[in-house]
Design a protein around this nucleic acid. Structure first.
Lengths: 231, 231
DNA sequence: AAAAAAAAGTGAGATAACTCATTTTTTTAC
DNA sequence: GTAAAAAAATGAGTTATCTCACTTTTTTTT
């Protein structure tokens, strides 16, 4: 969901910066002078809600969570970002403000792109515009489905959705080593960590999922999809 | 929140189409050939979630609600749109899909702009891009605050937020005739209509608001702001 | 203007999810 | 490899909000 189809570039895995598939030679060269590569340890903050940033962060390795912080330590995870994609955009034409926080879930590396350089490229080359607007639309759609999730679905359905999200859009596999803590998983499902535990054991007892610490496997994906719909 | 600062044009009230303040003479003339004006009665659907639309709807008079429909008649109002602003955008570079529904709250008139015409303008003139991106950022921010609202706030705070939204961003006045039904107000606050009624009478008894049918007045705005923060 | 229909308000009981306390398991540190 | 610390799981009791049934008020229709 959070990958920018067409905006990513496969050579990014080779660490040469290149985030628009439509990026020209000159643009690549231009950006090369306005980027720097940075490493983050698990738990480190990339963006902090309420501040601003002069960089766009393009993830090269690892994983980051994008979340909103409420008062008293409450948080809600909006999305998990994996390479090769941009992290949650600062409001680039509105003082570069950040309305959401981002933290590395595992050790990660990222490419920091100067916002002014980015602006000059999207303003000078219209071929990037469709991808950009498509990205904003996807995010908007994702956020509204997250809203429906917490508003109308019960705990079972919310956990089902969280698991399906991990399988379909994060690990691309029914079996995965969860990099998130149970608290993170709870914040992804929008509920308490205790309730998350309870639902997980319940699903385990029903043999819908197999859980062994961080290692997880979805045995009955159809059932989870049912849960998601009915709840 | 949902007005497009700089994208609206005061002559719109004169029914000449003009949605970018930066729109050139030629662009205006071009758009004039790709728009039509339509009237909607209260309750009529402008956009239907799950379909697509080849038009952007620019509101000229009246008011519309943008909402997500859950199953069994449940709904959640994301925003109220007033003139002169665009209604919730279809995914213009993604098959023009609609992920949210819109319905006229009162009798309204709108200008329907052909998406292809709109596209050709934003692709040919880069001066519109900042406004467009600013708009998407505002919406994103609005949606995340709506999320925080329903996730972390209690009923009092949610009603307080709804009332403050009406005062600050819809009617621009502490005293207003509410065009929404109590059910709509409930869907704006993300709770049941019964609970909405109860909180309203409670606030009335505390003399925080004055309610007489559709007519409402916020007497103690500070208190509502307190409620919003603490809840 | 009266009757009918719809919307709004109220009360009581039900329930989903949370919180707090405790135990068990896993991870980290020495 | 053992001890300490942190994370996860479990249980019991609490609570915020919803649902359903009923009453009152407002709006619409004739």
């Amino acid at each position: 969901m959070n990958t920018l189809e067409g905006i990513r570039c496969h050579s990014c895995s080779n660490k040469s910066l290149c985030f628009f598939s439509t990026l020209s030679e000159e643009e690549s060269a231009f950006l090369a002078h306005h980027k720097r590569e940075v490493t983050y340890k698990a738990g480190e903050t990339l963006y902090k809600q309420g501040t601003s940033s002069q960089y766009l962060i393009f993830l090269l390795s690892g994983m980051a969570k994008v979340f909103i912080e409420g008062d008293d330590r409450k948080a809600f995870i909006l999305q998990l970002v994996k390479p090769f994609a941009f992290l949650d955009f600062p409001a680039i034409f509105d003082k570069d403000q950040l309305y959401r926080s981002s933290v590395a879930v595992v050790d990660s590396t990222a490419c920091l792109v100067d916002i002014d350089a980015f602006k000059s490229i999207i303003l000078s080359n219209k071929t990037h515009l469709p991808n950009l607007i498509r990205y904003f639309n996807q995010i908007q759609h994702h956020y509204t489905s997250r809203l429906v999730n917490v508003l109308y679905k019960n705990m079972e359905a919310r956990i089902a959705d969280a698991l399906l999200y991990l399988v379909n859009e994060v690990y691309y596999n029914r079996s995965f080593r969860l990099d998130l803590s149970r608290k993170d998983l709870a914040e992804l499902a929008g509920m308490s960590k205790e309730s998350t535990s309870r639902i997980l054991t319940q699903l385990k007892d029903q043999e819908i999922i197999r859980v062994k610490g961080k290692q997880m496997e979805v045995l009955d994906k159809k059932y989870l999809e049912q849960l998601s719909k009915l709840g």
